[in-house]
Structure formats: structure tokens, C-alpha cells
Amino acid sequence: MNAADRERHSAERAIRVDLQLIADMIEPSSRVLDVGCGDGALLEYLTTFKHVDGRGIELSTTGVNACISRGLSVIQGDADADLKNYPDAAFDYVILSHTLQAMVAPHEVLGHMMRIGRRAIVSFPNFAFWRVRLDFLLGGRMPESDLMPYHWYDTPNIHLCSIKDFVALCGKMGFRVERSLSLDSTGRARRIGAGIFTANLLGEQAVFLLTK
């Protein structure tokens, strides 16, 4: 393995499994906006290996400063408030990874993403995952998990949904699902396709690629 391959290998291993799935959906050299980009791990990966023209929006000051310090173009902002300023069709992809459930108005954010970008990529924890259902059914308490590591009173996740809910919203808003994957708790990805009942039960999280 040469140095470049080693670097690539370690970088590929370094990003979260759902981020890797998102990255695989993106065409090289495209224009990408990552909404809720955190410390910029995905943006850096896409810039380095897919040569995208990448931008990010992040709410936390520490995340933003980390991104800019890494040479990424990121603004401190709030998806609920700041997406409306972007012009139509400015990006090839607008990404929202594990952020939809924390939005004040998820449907409006989705609408803006599809207005700003030709495609949108959304990942979120599936609230109908069997273990979440079981926790609530048998334990009678609000579910907590690795993907939702909060108590009911301090969670930023104010709009949790299931895979079925999300598909229904996309249908209502007229967005086409180009690709959809569910990930089980081991991180193994499956196409959702027609098997939505199974995906909604077995998928701990999901990744959707949407077009108009």
C-alpha cells in the first residue's frame, strides 16, 4: 500500500458509516452544501476524495471554528433561519445528516433543501426501530439509544420520525426517492425499496437521496 492509499484508507475508515454511505451517493466535482456539518468530517472527506466544491452550515461555534481552521468554507448559522437566503439550484447536493429531527420546521427545511439543490440527501434515526418500539412498549419510558443519547427533557430532537413517516412526507411534498438505505445496529446497509415494513422495523437509521 503506498502513502496515498494509506491516507485514503485511514480517511475512509475515519468517517461514520452513515457519512460514508452519503459520500458514496455524491458525484465527483459537484457542488455540495452540508447542513449541520459538525466538525466538517464529511466535508473534508468530500473535498479531499471527491474534489467537490463544498460549503457548510453549522450551529455550534466550536464546530464552525474547527471547520474554518481546517480550511473548509463554513458559516455559523441555523438551518431553520438561514437556508432561505440561498438562491434556487445553487448546489448539486444539499446534505442533512442526523439533523432533520432537531429542526423547528423539518418540512420547511426539506423544501428549502430541494429548492437550493438539485438533490437532497437526508439521514436520520428511525423512531420505529424495533428496539425503540420495545423500549417504549415494555419499559414505558421515552427511548434512549446510541443514536438518541438524550433524556426526554434535554433532547434537541424535537421532531423524531420513522422511515414510513419520512417517505410519506416526501410523497406529500412531491419529492422522488432516488435511493434509500436502512442501516441495522451493526451498520449493515440494505436497500429499502419495496421492503419498507421490514426496513421500518429493522433499520436503526436511514439515508435517503431525493430528487424533484
Partner: peptide, 21 residues
Amino acid sequence: NRKIMHALNAVAANVSFAEIV
């Protein structure tokens, strides 16, 4: 400063914005 950022976003400019504590 944020107003400037919004103007730059509106033309899809390459912009970073950080508020320093």
C-alpha cells in the same frame, strides 16, 4: 456581519462566517 453573510449566501458565494466568543 450576519447581514453581509446573508447577502453573500444569496449569490452562492464562497463564504465562511465565525462568531468568536
